[in-house]
């Protein structure tokens, strides 16, 4: 399989990139004034100098910067992400606990955005410059221009405060202990508003890309050939146009998997979800270097694997890519 070796090569190339990113983040955080003990002092409301010194020793901050970096990389090579200073336990555990909500939220909103972006994009392209197109494009523009925190807060006010249909925040109901299908439904109910909030902006992007790419493909020669062959319009769209028009969409998914991880800081804060975005924000404020680097590492791994899958999908959608390499 040529495509496999191609994707494999790209995978190998991403390992040095990953290390460069980690070193970069490490050094960047050194530039930020204050360390985790200053952050702790800020949280405690003060303390004397002797306490601060004892704490610096406790967190291993009495070492030089190169020694700290060296230590970190050496641990990382052995797949040890180190110890989190704010959580007092291994970073790997901290991240593992926070991963499920983030991945659930990310998958849900990406699928939502992708599916409806595709459908509305096709509808808009079919009726280009007529009322469905105008309506869909205007709506898309509104979604795109609305800041997600505002959208989230308004959704809470409408659906949780006034209508009381959905919970205003949290990952699951703490009042009652639920198991099995009820727990799944409970978590799903908690994720409806965050998914919509995070997904709507991406929906707007997808629908515009889909519309443009449909319009472009619709004008190509092979579509004319297909029509000349006497195929009906639905067939032309589903069999010939859609498949070719999907390529830019798939590229976008690969690119946005990373953005979604970062973009969810806002959504996670507004909806009080215990996800990776909030953890990352907290680690920056608390100067918890190990946790932050751990998150960068895991996010990078996620992005790399999503892009690997995207590479494989390309080949499936357009066999020319696999053939040409």
């Amino acid at each position: 399989m040529r495509i496999l070796s191609l994707a494999g090569r790209r995978l190998a190339a991403s390992i040095p990139t990953l290390f460069l990113i980690l070193i970069g983040v490490f050094l960047l955080l050194q530039l930020a004034p204050g360390d985790t003990v200053d952050a702790l002092m800020a949280q405690m409301g003060g303390g004397d100098a002797a306490t601060a010194e004892a704490l610096r020793k406790f967190y291993g901050l009495d070492l030089s910067v190169p020694a700290q970096l060296g230590n970190y990389l050496w641990h990382l090579v052995r797949l040890d992400l180190g110890f989190s200073s704010i959580y007092g336990k291994p970073v790997a555990n901290v991240i593992l606990e926070r991963l499920p909500p983030t991945i659930l939220l990310m998958t849900a909103s990406l699928s939502f955005a992708f599916f409806f972006g595709l459908v509305f994009g096709v509808i808009a392209a079919r009726g280009v410059n007529r009322w469905p197109d105008t309506m869909i494009s205007t709506l898309g523009l509104i979604f795109y221009a609305t800041p997600s925190f505002w959208f989230g807060l308004m959704a809470i006010v409408v659906f949780s405060v006034y209508l009381q249909w959905l919970p205003p925040g949290g990952f699951e109901d703490i009042g009652t202990v639920q198991t099995g299908i009820w727990r799944v439904l409970d978590i799903a109910a908690h994720l409806v508003l965050p998914t919509l909030t995070l997904g709507l902006i991406f929906l707007a992007i997808y629908l515009r890309i889909m519309r443009a790419s449909m319009l472009e493909v619709l004008n190509l020669d092979f579509v004319r050939t297909a029509r000349a062959k006497g195929l009906d319009e639905t067939h032309v769209i589903t069999r010939h146009v859609l498949r070719n028009a999907l390529l830019p969409m798939v590229t976008l998914i690969g690119l946005q998997a990373g953005t979604m991880l970062g973009g969810s800081v806002v959504v996670e804060s507004v909806f009080s979800l215990p996800g990776l975005g909030r953890l990352a924000y907290e680690s920056v404020v608390q100067r918890d270097l190990n946790t932050l680097l751990g998150i960068v590492f895991v996010s990078a791994l996620l992005v790399i694997s999503v892009n690997f899958v995207v590479d494989l999908l390309y080949a499936r959608l357009d066999p020319r890519i696999a053939a040409e390499g």
Binding site: L153, V161, Q164, P168, G169, S269, S272
Partner: peptide, 20 residues
């Protein structure tokens, strides 16, 4: 007693109003 971690102040106000 349940302490709920809510970092966003506006979201906390909405939760007060929703009775949570």
């Amino acid at each position: 007693i349940v302490w709920k971690v809510i970092t966003d102040r506006a979201a906390a106000a909405a939760q007060m109003e929703a009775g949570e």
